[in-house]
Every structure is written in structure tokens, then in C-alpha cells.
Design a protein around this nucleic acid. Structure first.
Lengths: 199, 199
DNA sequence: GTCTATATCCGGATAGAC
DNA sequence: GTCTATCCGGATATAGAC
């Protein structure tokens, strides 16, 4: 196999996953047909089925990309020298670019919500989502632990607090996906006030 | 129309919605077929289509019931004499029976998640969900307002805080639906600690 | 009012030409 | 490697008997 082919294959896969992500963001997993994905990708049925065996595989692929993006950003953030506190972490997570990378929130929030919903039933997606959430809990728990060790006493268990912070982001995504409320900036400000009062 | 017929009709509708709710909780809206609902209800296709014009109508009906249950419980709670504070409200909302009425959380959480996901795209479900979330925000905002007026100073805006509390419940539902974590009791305890520290 | 049987349509996946 | 045409299964909704 020549080198070109590998790069080509990767690009095609990416092209298909991006197209599928757009469709899924608009219509959800089950309401989008393969014809939609094929059309959005500008390819033919035969080409798409060469790279993915089934619609299921594409769904899993898109879910994987969504989580990978979120996790990468968070890893970078907590890896800095100064351990961030609850307020900083919440603040960072609620920033739209950190949740939604390239895609606009209006598209990304429903997509993320679809992935969670799918994860509650589809075993493969569940495995991906479950692994990522577990990793996020550990990551945040460790960061908070370091933060407390660095001289910030706190009455709450860092690992429990990690789940709470994740909830705050998930809840925001749910509400924003449904009625576009509350405004991100106000939400950020309230979380900061909450955590600074609790410290 | 004789009286019996009205009661009969209501009972049939309820029978169908309950059966549909069970199916949706297991497989989600789009993966359950009308045949599934018909079988679970123990009726025939003709009978079901006599009470609901389409699958869409059934979905909307189930979504409406889900929200009605949650709202009724909350209304009862905030209507008591002593205005509840953030810790009390969060505590109440996280109790499984208050979220999940009859159904077990393991069934109800994925169902609720499906409803939210559907609400992000289906205009009719969105209208129902949006109205309920808006009402919950107002309801909680008013309760918190009364609580602050009753001598509990708080740095945060009550209306903003309402959205935050709703998020905390929504996030719990998402996480529980995906991997059954965190344990409800621990989560409740952490929220109580958080809000009591912040007061 | 309720059931059975079915018309009709649509979506996923494949086969074979180029 | 890619495209076109097509097949097959299954799902929704209806028609008509009882």
C-alpha cells in the first residue's frame, strides 16, 4: 500500500464523520438516514460503506470524536502548573469553545445530548461514554485534590465534587439544547459566585 | 356519549401511554416500533390508532406525562409554609421518588434523557419541555426569593440559582443513565455540603 | 369498539459496472 | 476505488370484517 492511500483513507473517514456529525446535530441519530449522510459527505453509498460497515459504526465514530475533543481540551487545562480550583474548572468547562471546539453550541449541544441518550441504551456507545466520564471524574478529582493540598481547605470530598462539576456542565447542555437558556455568561458568573462562597 | 365511555377512553389512553413509556424507557423513542407498544399494551393496532393518530402523538403524550409528574411533586414541595433553601430544594429533587414517581430510576433516567434529546429537535416536544423548564425556573426562583427574604442572605441571584439547581438534577440523570454513578446518597450529601458552605 | 390482515413506503445494505 | 441501481426487511398507518 502506498503512503498516499493511508492519508487518503484517513481523510475520507474524517470527511464522512464530519458530515455525519452535521446530520446528527440537525436531526439526531435515528432520524437521519444513510442517504442524508451520503449526500452531506458528497460521496456515494458504495464509498461510504467502504469505510464504515454500518450506520452503527458511524454513530460510534461520531460519539468517539465528540468525547475525544472534550477530553483533549480538559487534559490540556488541568495539566498546567497551578492546580485549578472548582470555580476555575467550572469556568473553563462552561466556555463554549472548550465544550464545542469548532462547532457552534446551537449545533453541538443537541448532538452531545443525543450521544448521552444513545449511550444510555447502545452498549458500544455506552462503553465509550462511560470510559470518558469515568476518566473525567478521575481527572477532575485529582486536580481538586492537588488544589486542596496546595492550601485550599474544603469541606467536600474532591471526587464527589468532580461529579458535581460535571453535572453542572451537563445540565447546562440540556437546558441550552432545549430553550437556549440560561445565558452562558450569567451561568458562569453564578457558578463562580457559588464556588467562591463555598471555599 | 354515556359516562362509561369517557372513563373507558381515559383508561385506555392511560393504558397505552404507560405501555409506551415502558417501551421507550427500554429502547428509546425511535427504536421502539408501534408493534412493541401495541404488544406491551395488550391491544391491537386498530385500537391503539383509535386513541392516538400517530406514533408522534404517543411520544408527545408520554413526554407530557413525564413532565407533569415532576412538576406536580415540585409544586407540592415548594407550596409548604417554610420556604426551602437551595440545600433543601436540591435534596428534595435528588430523592428518587420525586424525580421518578412510580418507575425505577434505572428505567426512568434513560426515559427522561430521551425526552430531553427529543425536545432539542422535535418542535412539539420542545414546546412542552420548554414550558415546563421555564415554569420550574420561575417556581424555584420564587421559592429562593422567599427564602432570602425570610432572613437568609445570599450573594447569588435567586433566578440564576434556580437554573443551577435544575442543572444539578439534570446532570445527575445523565450520569446515572450512563454508568449508574454517582450514588444518589453521596450526591445528595455533597450538594448539601456545597450549599450550606455557600450560604 | 376492537381485531386481523395488509397496502404502502422507506431505510439500510449490497452487487456489479466502470 | 467509486458510482448506480436495486433488493429486502421492517415500520407506519389503514381498511374492512366482526
Amino acid at each position: 500500500m502506498p503512503k498516499v492511500t493511508d492519508a487518503h483513507r484517513a481523510a475520507r473517514r474524517e470527511q464522512i464523520l464530519t458530515a455525519a456529525g452535521n446530520c446528527f446535530a440537525r436531526k439526531g441519530f435515528h432520524a437521519t438516514s444513510m442517504a442524508d449522510v451520503i449526500g452531506e459527505a458528497g460521496l456515494s453509498a458504495g464509498a461510504v460503506y467502504l469505510y464504515f460497515r454500518s450506520k452503527e459504526e458511524i454513530i460510534v465514530g461520531v460519539a468517539g470524536e465528540v468525547f475525544a475533543g472534550i477530553e483533549a481540551r480538559l487534559l490540556e487545562f488541568v495539566g498546567r502548573d497551578e492546580p485549578p480550583g472548582p470555580a476555575d474548572i467550572a469556568d473553563f468547562l462552561v466556555q463554549q469553545p472548550s465544550i464545542a471546539r469548532q462547532r457552534a453550541p446551537a449545533d453541538f449541544f443537541p448532538l452531545l445530548l443525543s450521544v448521552w441518550s444513545e449511550a444510555s441504551r447502545n452498549p458500544t456507545v455506552n462503553a465509550v461514554a462511560g470510559r470518558v466520564i469515568a476518566e473525567l471524574r478521575v481527572l477532575l478529582g485529582q486536580a481538586l485534590h492537588r488544589w486542596m493540598d496546595a492550601g485550599h481547605p474544603c469541606a467536600m470530598d474532591p471526587d464527589q465534587l468532580a461529579s458535581v462539576i460535571i453535572s453542572l456542565v451537563q445540565g447546562l447542555v440540556v437546558q441550552q439544547a432545549i430553550d437556549g437558556q440560561p445565558p452562558l455568561e450569567q451561568y458562569r458568573a453564578t457558578l463562580r459566585a457559588l464556588f467562591e462562597a463555598a471555599q
